[in-house]
Simulated assay, not measured.
Amino acid sequence: MMRAMGACLLGMLLLVMLPAQAEYRVETVVDGLEHPWSLAFLGDGVMLVTERPGRLRVVENGVLRDTPVEGVPDVFASGQSGLFEVLPAPDFARSGVLFLSYVHGDRNANHTRIVRARFDGQRLTDVQPIFTTRPSKSGDAHAGGRLLLLPDGTLLMGLGDGFFFREESQKLDSHMGTIVRIHTDGRIPADNPFVGRAGALPEIYSYGHRHIQGLVYDAGRERIFAHEHGPRGGDELNIITPGTNYGWPLVSFGRDYSRALITPFTRMTGMEQPVLHWTPSIAPAGLALYEGDAFPGWRGNLLVAALAEKSLRRIPMAGGQPGAQEVLLEDLGERIRDVRVGPDGAIYVLTDEENGRLLRLTPD
């Protein structure tokens, strides 16, 4: 059923105090989304939302279109696996090109894949795979899937270790537990750090990760931030540099889910330390850098969507270093999957629920 934003707002506005004594509202733009994962803005009041079971949805001026977008590839939807990111190309208004990431295959053998497609407002056409991880893995956990376009036109994807295969994160002949970098047509950039190295996959940009689900580019300081899930504690925020080893599973601030020690080391020569870590785990799932005008006091801050903590974290980054964190939206009691800054400067979040919501934060 079509849902007008005005109808959804009735009884759903929260008045909350900012740390700087400002006020903001949390508005439900649309509800009825099944485990939404990613949000993208197309302009003219149109947004795209992915649902993990494999649907791409259109939101037009606050109304959720009844019919999902046609032409989405079949996905392996189980547990943590399914349809992940939707990312419009920088020239989307002219080309109609966007990118999707998802899990391809089945429980016994699956891969995280990126496809390039054209969207005409109703359906996807010219759907072409441009990257597929290798080797295949079994199970439905830790597939990664977060995408990021860099200013040089290349495309990053953060990946997971497959949960049962954490040793793969230290191997350069496996995409598990890495960030990969490709051109938007699938070609491999010649300046990738392991191009030409025997036994190394040339798409690998960094490795030693557990399960990356947040990527953002800080243009002011020309750096890439990524966050990843730890096990029981040890979630990390990292600055990503090419060819760097981030340590997992040889280095970690977390313990296994059984509470057993995974490693006695929190640092090791040749392995990068995180900018910060969260112990106990908050389960970071989305990442944005605020550069809008609606909340001028938040410019340059990182925003982290958290599943386990059911919150949105604001991290001031004065001088390029993290300051005291503010925990927001805990009163909602909903898992927060994604966070984005809209063209209007408002902050948009997706709640990872069977009846998930798209929320909008604006100054009051």
Rank of each mutant, 00 (worst) to 15 (best):
R166L: 01
R221F: 04
I182F: 05
P189C: 06
D152F: 04
M157Y: 01
G160T: 13
D152A: 07
A190H: 10
A198K: 13
R181V: 05
L147R: 05
R210C: 14
S136W: 11
E203R: 08
D140F: 15
A219I: 02
G230C: 10
N238T: 12
T133W: 03
A200L: 11
E203C: 08
G158Q: 04
D235K: 04
L147M: 14
I212K: 06
T184H: 01
G158L: 06
D235Q: 10
E222C: 02
L155P: 10
G177V: 06
Y207D: 10
G144C: 13
S138T: 14
S169C: 08
A200K: 14
Q170W: 02
H209V: 14
R181L: 05
E168A: 13
R134Y: 07
R223E: 11
S206V: 13
N192R: 04
S138L: 04
G177C: 04
I240V: 15
A198I: 03
Q213W: 11
I182N: 02
D140V: 11
H229Y: 11
Q170C: 03
P151H: 05
G233I: 08
I224H: 01
L156E: 01
S206F: 08
S206D: 14
S169G: 12
V216T: 15
G139N: 09
L147D: 09
Y207T: 11
P135V: 08
D152K: 06
Q213F: 12
G220H: 14
R223Q: 15
I182W: 02
R187Y: 02
G230T: 10
D152W: 05
G233Y: 13
L148I: 09
L215W: 08
G153S: 03
P202Q: 10
G199I: 07
D218E: 12
